[in-house]
């Protein structure tokens, strides 16, 4: 692990039976950087995200995380309480389906405030104010703070999930197809929001997407995966405009222009 990287992975291997999900995968992420992992189904991109975030263990290889004090830890050797604490504070995880990460029976404000309460916040007034502030940041009307997410549209739910994730100012956020399943106009708004927030807050992001346009818009660097192997990695515009690997060339040429 070099002196500056926030997250580093070396020699990750994981097979599901005979199916290769990760084959000698290396990855690095620097503070404030957005790294996109692109590939089609079966590429291993979601598996890589899960292994990097400690949610799934590799069969071999290591993932290191450097915290704000510069202390380096092996993500998969951490105790369960430490990893859970990390996920609640310095890290965030935005799921493709926002319902996986929201309490549908709890108000929007309660959803956003939960991480604060989990960290020991005990002042109702300030928790609520902070929640309202974050709802504004993700363009949800303040008047909805007491509403149940059941009444929200898909795009609003996703934005609520993002507010809930960012409220503790994480340094690193994992995103799994954050715009998947949303209408195109809704996607545009969400992408713009993610782009703005990530840049303004200097958050490092590992973003899994099958949509090259999303990678181009949000990511500094991109990793292209095919059947568990990283076939190409580099500057986003370079990989997408001057693809070297045959599979990357295939992916890029397959994208339909509107």
């Amino acid at each position: 692990m070099t002196d500056e990287t926030l997250l580093s992975a070396r020699n990750l291997n994981l097979h599901f039976g005979a199916v290769p999900a990760l084959v000698n995968v290396n990855a690095d992420l620097w503070p404030g950087e957005v790294l996109a992992i692109v590939g089609e189904s079966g590429s291993g991109k979601t598996t890589l995200l899960n292994v990097l975030s400690g949610r799934m263990a590799p069969q071999s290889g290591t993932v290191w995380y450097r915290d704000s004090e510069g202390v380096q830890s092996d993500v998969h050797a951490m105790s369960a309480p430490s990893l859970r604490a990390l996920h609640r504070s310095d890290w965030g995880f935005v799921h493709q389906n926002p319902r996986d990460n929201l309490r549908m029976g709890v108000s929007a404000g309660g959803n956003v405030g939960e991480r604060l309460m989990a960290q020991g916040s005990r002042h109702y007034g300030s928790i609520r104010e902070e929640a309202i502030r974050w709802l504004a940041q993700v363009e949800i009307d303040e008047a909805r703070v007491d509403d149940l997410p059941r009444t929200f549209s898909g795009g609003m739910l996703q934005r609520l999930q993002i507010a809930r994730t960012l409220v503790t100012h994480p340094r690193l956020v994992f995103m799994d197809e954050p715009t998947g399943g949303l209408d195109v106009s809704v996607q545009a708004r969400l992408l713009d929001l993610i782009r703005t927030l990530v840049r303004r807050l200097g958050i490092a992001v590992v973003l899994v997407t099958h949509d090259l346009a999303v990678a181009r818009l949000l990511a500094h660097r991109v990793m292209v995966m095919q059947r568990g192997v990283v076939v190409e990695t580099g500057l986003t515009d370079q990989v997408l405009d001057d693809p070297q690997h045959p599979y990357t060339q295939l992916l890029v040429s397959s994208v339909l222009a509107a």
Binding site: E114, M117, I127, D146
Partner: peptide, 18 residues
């Protein structure tokens, strides 16, 4: 086991909200 009781505080928060 992990002393993660945020959820209970969320319930109290919801009560105060409602």
């Amino acid at each position: 086991g992990l002393a993660e009781y945020g959820l209970m505080h969320v319930k109290l928060y919801e009560d105060i909200t409602r």
